[in-house]
């Protein structure tokens, strides 16, 4: 081997931003932002110290939950949440099917496509809570407003994913059915439905799960469900009841997640 000298220095080439000055500029910008952002956080330390004690009480309440004292409120909220979840998922999925089909570029005429896409866009960009505030203002307090909120949110969620699935279907199969002289409805029935059905069921189960979690929240603005109960118990500093409610929510979420993953596997 020839005695040739090789460099003894090596630096990893930058992976994301190649240009040197840009890298410095971005790093500087990020640091500056962080300093400014952290600067805006005003912490009232006296209040925090006070909070430590309350936090301990909350943890104690979580570890020794009290299911009995407020059981009537809890069970009412729970029933509202569960019924709201189920009915809104069913109605939401039923409505989102035509909307999803309409929002699929390969099936719908131009104008229908734009109408359906804008329905989906509106539904997706509005926070559930904000929608709930409006529905409560219009339909009064209670589970019905919650039901409408969740239905509305479900339409955007399922509609978008369903439309994307339909756009991804195997064109060859649709072509084959079209070649038999099938009508538009027959095309949907024979070429599209079999391909997207399992996925639709999976999505609905997934949404059921999300709707339950959301139903626990929209009660805070008056749309019924377990969230209202939780809100009341927290504002009364009854941490043992709050702990009980949180444990119930966690348990139900775990259960739905577990069973829906099983069901999805079974549907496939």
């Amino acid at each position: 081997m020839t005695k040739q000298s090789y460099p003894t220095q090596w630096r990893r080439p930058p992976q994301i931003i190649q240009a040197k000055h840009w890298r410095y500029l971005v790093t500087f910008g990020v640091l500056l932002y962080l300093i400014m952002a952290i600067g805006t956080v005003e912490v009232n330390w006296g209040r925090v110290v006070e909070g430590v004690e309350r936090g301990q009480r909350f943890i104690a309440g979580f570890l020794q939950p009290d299911f009995t004292t407020r059981w009537r409120d809890i069970s009412r909220g729970l029933i509202e949440s569960l019924t709201m979840t189920f009915t809104s998922t069913v109605v939401g999925v039923l409505i989102s099917i035509p909307i999803g089909v309409g929002a699929a570029r390969n099936l719908a005429p131009r104008w229908v496509y734009y109408v359906c896409r804008s329905v989906i866009a509106v539904s997706r960009s509005l926070q559930e809570i904000i929608v709930a505030i409006f529905f409560v203002a219009l339909f009064g307090f209670g589970a019905f407003a919650g039901f409408l909120t969740l239905t509305f949110a479900t339409i955007g969620f399922i509609g978008k994913l369903l439309a994307e699935d339909i756009e991804d279907i195997d064109e060859a199969q649709a072509e084959a059915v079209r070649a038999t002289g099938a009508s538009w409805l027959q095309l949907i029935n024979y070429a599209v439905q079999p391909q997207v059905m399992p996925r639709l069921i999976g999505l609905s189960l997934y949404r059921l799960d999300i709707n339950f979690r959301e139903s626990a929240v929209i009660g805070i603005v008056g749309a019924g469900g377990i969230g209202a109960t939780l809100n009341t118990s927290l504002s009364r500093y009854e941490y043992d009841s709050s702990g009980a409610i949180l444990i119930i929510i966690i348990a139900i979420v775990m259960m739905t997640e577990y069973s829906s993953s099983h069901l999805r596997r079974w549907v496939k």
Partner: peptide, 24 residues
């Protein structure tokens, strides 16, 4: 990624040996 200089020189030598000096 601060390996000793000898290791780096050795790595360059090996890359040269297997004909991949330009691809480091």
């Amino acid at each position: 990624r601060k390996f000793p200089g000898d290791d780096i020189a050795k790595a360059y030598r090996l890359l040269d040996r297997v004909g991949l000096m330009a691809h480091a």
